[in-house]
Amino acid sequence: MSPPSVGVQGVPAANRPAPRRSRGRLFDVLLNLPGGLITSTLILFTLALLLYLSLRVNDGQLLGSAFTFANLTQAVADPLTRTVLLRSIMLSAIVTVVTVVLAYPVAYFLAFHAGKYRHGLLFMISLPFWTSYLLRVFAWKIVLAWNGVLNSTLMGLGLTDAPLAGLLNTPTAVVITLAHAYAAFAVLPLYICLHGLARNLLEAAADLGAKPHQCFFKVILPLSMPGVMAAALVVFVPTVGDYVTPALVGGPASSMIGTLIQAQFGKANDWTAGAALAVVSMLAIAVVVLATRALVNRWVLPR
């Protein structure tokens, strides 16, 4: 197949390997072309554009006419932004922990005990993921409202005399709703990781006399940390910037960074400031994620 063999037996240069190879290269180029174009324009270019916009002076033109760091420094210095960004990260961190902790036993069951029900259960758990996020959040609004399902049920059962006020429009409502909405996101990576654990390691632990709880805490849990981290990542990152949930069930006291960004692109109409907010929050998210990963790698992962 290699080029030196060409013409060895007096075969004319126009033999197979060379043209096929170049056709293969053309094939690869054309195969990568649509995906390359779409990802580089829709994802890379627009994200770069956002970064660029955050560095421009807002003078009424779409992309501004001069560079400045003022948007970014303002975004970092503004106490409101700092409060809201910190709150977003705290709430999302709580949501992430709650979601992953609640999902872990489900993934464990699916990986080790579900047997013939595994595929059915996996489908049941991922089905809500394919239904409208807006409607799932809206459902919690009905449940938690002052004159809503939970209060009317509690009163109907005679458990309370007056509606409980502290349900809707609180940070707790945001946490519950987000934890519910992102449940499927956490179960699947955990399940994939637990399912892929080498069974012979677990057998070895049992053979060497590990009790079931030791087997879990010393073998399964540490080995499943990559799955835990993957699950945490796919829950944490999107929830920090969530807009729908704080808007529908959060009330004014629990607005999150997505709310502020939307306001800059909506009512306030200050796109450069909005872009700067987005850039600052993505950086903050990246710092939290990398710091958490470093901590987990240092303290939790087995050597």
Binding site: G35, G36, V237, D242, W271
Partner: peptide
């Protein structure tokens, strides 16, 4: 390319939305 194509899972919807909004305006 495949990794990049799956990146939107890890972007908050708001960020994807405004990035595309600036893009389609430009």
């Amino acid at each position: 390319i495949s990794l990049l194509a799956r990146l939107p899972i890890l972007l908050p919807g708001v960020v994807l939305g405004i990035a595309l909004l600036v893009g389609v305006n430009l």
